[in-house]
Design a protein around this nucleic acid. Structure first.
Lengths: 230, 230, 230, 230
DNA sequence: GTGGTCTAGACCACC
DNA sequence: GTGGTCTAGACCACA
């Protein structure tokens, strides 16, 4: 079920894009649960638009692997596929490790400062237990790395992978790996970059991405129907 | 301009998907040239369908970065962005090197045989100078590697990156790195996998992907309007 | 367009079967023209039933190759495919020649008498120029042959083939090969059977089936859109 | 009883068609035994769909003579009718002999090569005792012949006939005419075609089809309830 | 109750 | 808004 307090549609941005982002947001933070049925007609009425922009948004969501359209059956939020998440993590590690290695050479001093500032804010968010804010900062942290080697494409790619990983995170809020540990890992990465040491940067990034909480176990046992059959 | 001998639309598959594949094919092999204008209306008439499925296909092509929709201006085949291609190659290397490393442990004997058979066919294609066939075999070769570590997600990702790299390849047909060399590199990868040596597999894959001909130089000078301004 | 004077639906026979026969009849005698669009909804309203039994009838008509269902496009009366008709004639010749050959041995005297009587009635129908009646008798003639060798399956097979041949016949009513000639050929077949001469029976049947008017020429020129593109 | 490991339903193909094929397969290879009762409700539950697409599949199966619907009694897998199988063989002989005769003139050199390659694979399958693979190759062999005279209609017809013959074959696996002999007969057909000798091709095909093992004897004695009462 | 048949309504994709 | 497909539910006949 969609939240009743939908974001108002802004004027001069394509409607389909706004709907895409809204739906994506709802799916990633599990406001729309895995396996739940959604209907273009219903959504179009809730937003007060025609079905067309909703259809367009659906196509993009299919492209991101977040929904599944079964012709003549219905449209459903993709269930969480453990294999897909694990494979996603594998790919993400491959890419971000290479990014970190390169960044050790190329990152500018300004960007290093920005990363340090970001970490300070992470600490604040952690202190207030503001997980949403923390995740946003985390995202910005990694984006900055990709930007530092002038390879924004890397982040675009990872964004789709991350969406699937984040669904698990949101479901396991509270059981999540301690924010303190994540912050320490981020700091280690920045330290390696500041030392201009590619090998250390690679290693820091690798252990960071390996640490990410992927213990589906407890969540899956409580809600097996949110996960895809093997 | 679309080829006049369009593939007939099959009955039991969504029309939008069929059109997506047809257009993608035309863009990748440069039947539709970079920067060329395309129109949903015109295409819908050529296929004998309504504009809707063509619009759907356009959305997916935008997602793959192959076309660009300028509101109130028109729709255009993306010009080749050297930076995008180079960054794509960087990402691809990161992922496929990790794939190769893992495959050294996990690949089955059957799959090793399939790779060997594939290389034999590559030699045949090279002997007949059948470049299209060679590229298809190359694609199958790399797909098999991803499948061998049970991570088709890796290949799905690379497919979109590869589309941009392949446009350059098609334009530089003839100037392409000698097929013999590519075949030798493929053989080296298989050799490393058969030896179950991750480091060797990584190195073989890395040098293979670095070797790939991406010298825009001559093509770009002859046809500067196929490339994006920096 | 369906005829307005639809046959009333009888009480205790499945509705879908009655509709199947009605539609088949309309298609074979070209009341429903080749290529014409038909809709389950419209037909269901004309018969005063729901869409379901019409759908059931459609499935059977697809099985007989008389209509074509294009998902998400519509349902259409199959255009006449010259190749299909010709190939059908080829198959029919193969089967019925074998039937005739066998019948020379196995046919009973009673059945021979029935055939002779049938031919007499054909003469009457021809004299009154009652083509519909003639075609019904022709059908009975051939059915009797299949029954004579206890192989009703042969006729069931030919029935579907014949439906396509008959569409051409109905369109070329008047230009049809003279009924007299057909009657003479039937008589020749009976003569051969009565003589218990397999070779003669085979030859009589073969020349009969070769004689069948299949000159699409004039009809096709007048109505090219009733015929499938090659 | 249906196998428990049903094929997953694919997204972009009508459900009824997928179910039709699955059931047909089960009937032909006698996973569903002759005379066994099947129920649309039960099947719909096993596939996780409603009864409607199963009903659609049933209609097609009735058209192919593979199941029997007794109103108010139930739906049953057709028992094997010896007469039907024998008459089917008779019709198949008539058609395929004519096909072979024509193919001697019309078959292309490529198709002759394909047939030769097919026979080689038959030998491999026979060596591994892989009967299922052999039957698939056999099917492809005969299909190629029909295609060679541009008459796939012939094969479509035979396919339904063959389904009934194959049920007997599957039941008599092991007692089947030696694969070696069948391969030799296939080779003889190819030889005749390569010699462009219609009479020889006809004779080779005729003796091939006469040789096919259709001895109900032992099977019928052991399982009389799989066969129709005369 | 079971099984065959029919009705009404919903949804996706295309016009 | 339409057409093709699927779902859910009702009815009737037979056991």
């Amino acid at each position: 079920m969609l939240p009743t307090d939908l974001p108002a549609l802004s004027a001069h941005e394509p409607v389909n894009l706004q709907i895409y982002r809204a739906l994506r947001q709802c799916i990633v933070n599990c406001t729309l649960l895995p396996g739940e049925a959604i209907s273009d007609k219903e959504i179009s009425e809730q937003f007060g638009v025609s079905r067309q922009p909703v259809r367009d948004a659906f196509i993009k969501l299919v492209g991101a692997g977040l929904i599944q359209v079964l012709p003549q059956r219905g449209t459903f939020v993709m269930k969480i596929s453990p294999k897909r998440v694990l494979n996603g993590r594998f790919i993400r590690e491959a890419v971000e490790v290479a990014v970190a290695r390169n960044a050790a050479d190329k990152i500018s001093d300004e960007q290093l400062l920005a990363l340090a500032a970001n970490i300070e804010q992470q600490k604040l968010a952690a202190a207030r237990n503001d997980t949403a804010r923390f995740l946003a900062l985390d995202e910005e942290f990694h984006t900055t790395l990709s930007r530092s080697i002038d390879c924004i494409e890397a982040w675009e790619l990872i964004e789709d992978i991350k969406a699937h990983m984040d669904r698990v995170r949101y479901l396991s809020l509270g059981e999540i790996t301690s924010l303190q540990m994540l912050i320490a890992q981020h700091a280690a990465i920045v330290h390696a970059l500041r030392s201009r040491d590619p090998a250390m940067a690679e290693e820091a990034m690798r252990s960071h991405l390996r640490e990410i909480n992927l213990s589906f176990g407890p969540i899956r046992e409580r809600n097996p129907d949110w996960f895809e059959a093997e």
